[in-house]
Each structure stands twice: as structure tokens, then as C-alpha cells.
């Protein structure tokens, strides 16, 4: 815990907590990143479920690049939000659940894209549904971190 405390005491954590517009600014970036990552995650899931069925997966490649940019945006903004209140977040069950869901959602997303690219369409729909549920679950857990102490 002393490492987390020293994180919270660092100059950057103090800046994030105590400068008027820093925290809302980072939260806004985090919301944009979420919209990009989950939005594209849902686009691939819906494509696997049959929406826009004639779209070749290879033509969706640029969206994957965009999704990874969104992931980078949210890892950075998320880390900044985390170090501002490291001890609080790390002990919150909803935060732990959110992180676990995000890791799972990312892994399932990569699996889904690989399946679609290989065109082995057997289990795509089941995997797409799992992907969908994981993304929506991560958003739910993330929102609840603001309410459950």
C-alpha cells in the first residue's frame, strides 16, 4: 500500500486532484476513448451477428487501428485517473470487476477478429454475443465505481 500512497502523493497525482479542470478534462478523454473502443468493438460484434453481412473483414482493418488508438488513449487517461486515487480504486470491487471485464473483453475481441479474418464462421455468433456482454458489462462496472465506495 505504501507504493500506492506514494503514487497518490506524487506531483502529477496532486496536479490531477487539485487543479480545477484537470480531472474533468482527463475524464472527458476517457469517455471519448470509451466511445471509440466499445463502439468499434460493438461494430465487429454486430458484423459477426450478421449486420452489414457483405462487408469483407479485411476492409474493416482501419477500424481496428482506430480501436487500438482508443485503447492507448484510455490506458493513459485511465492510469492518470487511477494514480489520483490509487488506494481507493484498488480496493473497490467494482473497479476490480471493471478491469477484469476489460481484459476479458480485449482478449475475446482479438479472438473474434481472428475468427472473422480466418472465415471459420462456426462459433462467430456465440463469441460475438460474449464480446457484446463483456463490453456492456465493463461499462456498467465502470459507471458503478462512481457509486459503490
Amino acid at each position: 500500500m505504501s507504493f500506492l500512497a506514494s503514487l497518490e502523493g506524487s506531483a502529477i497525482a496532486v496536479l490531477i486532484r487539485e487543479t480545477m479542470w484537470t480531472y474533468p478534462g482527463i475524464i472527458s478523454v476517457h469517455a471519448i476513448g470509451m466511445a471509440i473502443v466499445v463502439g468499434i468493438g460493438l461494430v465487429f460484434a454486430l458484423r459477426a451477428l450478421g449486420l452489414g453481412g457483405r462487408i469483407p473483414i479485411s476492409s474493416m482493418d482501419p477500424l481496428l487501428k482506430l480501436a487500438w488508438i482508443g485503447v492507448g488513449l484510455n490506458v493513459c487517461s485511465g492510469l492518470l485517473l487511477f494514480i489520483a486515487d490509487a488506494r481507493k480504486f484498488l480496493t473497490m470491487p467494482t473497479f476490480q470487476i471493471k478491469l477484469a471485464l476489460l481484459v476479458a473483453a480485449t482478449i475475446v475481441f482479438v479472438m473474434l477478429v481472428r475468427r472473422l479474418e480466418a472465415n471459420r464462421s462456426g462459433n462467430d455468433k456465440a463469441l460475438a454475443m460474449i464480446s457484446l456482454v463483456l463490453w456492456l458489462g465493463a461499462i456498467t462496472a465502470g459507471r458503478l465505481t462512481a457509486y459503490i465506495k
Binding site: 470509451m34 466511445a35 463502439g39 468493438g41 461494430v43 452489414g52 477500424l63 463490453w135 461499462i139 459507471r143
Partner: peptide, 18 residues
């Protein structure tokens, strides 16, 4: 409601992005 609002915004933004 907030959770649904966030979910809706992600669905909307994904559709726009493609």
C-alpha cells in the same frame, strides 16, 4: 440510467465511426 446512457452513446458512436 447513466449506464444505459453510456451504452447508448457507445452504440451510436460505433455506428457513426464505420
Amino acid at each position: 440510467l447513466e449506464t444505459l446512457h453510456f451504452i447508448g452513446l457507445c452504440i451510436l458512436f460505433g455506428g457513426l465511426l464505420i
